[in-house]
Amino acid sequence: MNTTDVAAQIVPRFDDDASTGRTLAIICSKGSLDMAYPALVLANAALGEGVETHLFFTFWGFDMITTRTMGDLKFTMLGNPATHLPQGLGGLPGMTALATSRLRRSIAALDIPDVPEFLDQIVASGGHLWACRMSADMNGLSEADLYDGVEAIISASDFIEKTDGAQLLFI
């Protein structure tokens, strides 16, 4: 191994200027289990890097923060060629339940939390959760029906205003 004595001490640049003031906005529009995780993993990663992070739950993404559904998101093979199985199988009775339980098991095997616990971690890490006003109205839901960590039900324009200058992900 080549070793070089360095006079100057090397210190990691943890608070380098690039990350200060960086904001990430993630719009969660899907309510299936496999589409919930990308947003949760990325939000958690951003928070761990000191990035201010806002999630906006809209349309089917509302299921991720509705207490009745958030622990019971499903995964289906139907319309998903990435399972590499014949599409006809996906339509058989019980296949969605089977696919869901297998996906849940492989996620848990990696020590990754389920959706409600993942949201707890995101909120504990300083993440901001916002619910879409139109989705709430369409489903007849109020803040009482939503996960506690949701800060408020807000309009799309309010979200755009809150995330001025942010980098944006639509999932």
Binding site: F14, D15, S19, G48, E49, G50, Q121, A124, S125, G126
Partner: peptide
């Protein structure tokens, strides 16, 4: 708790 860990080792 995660929140306390952010307090002990801020930002990252």
């Amino acid at each position: 708790p995660v929140k306390a860990l952010f307090g002990l080792f801020p930002q990252k």
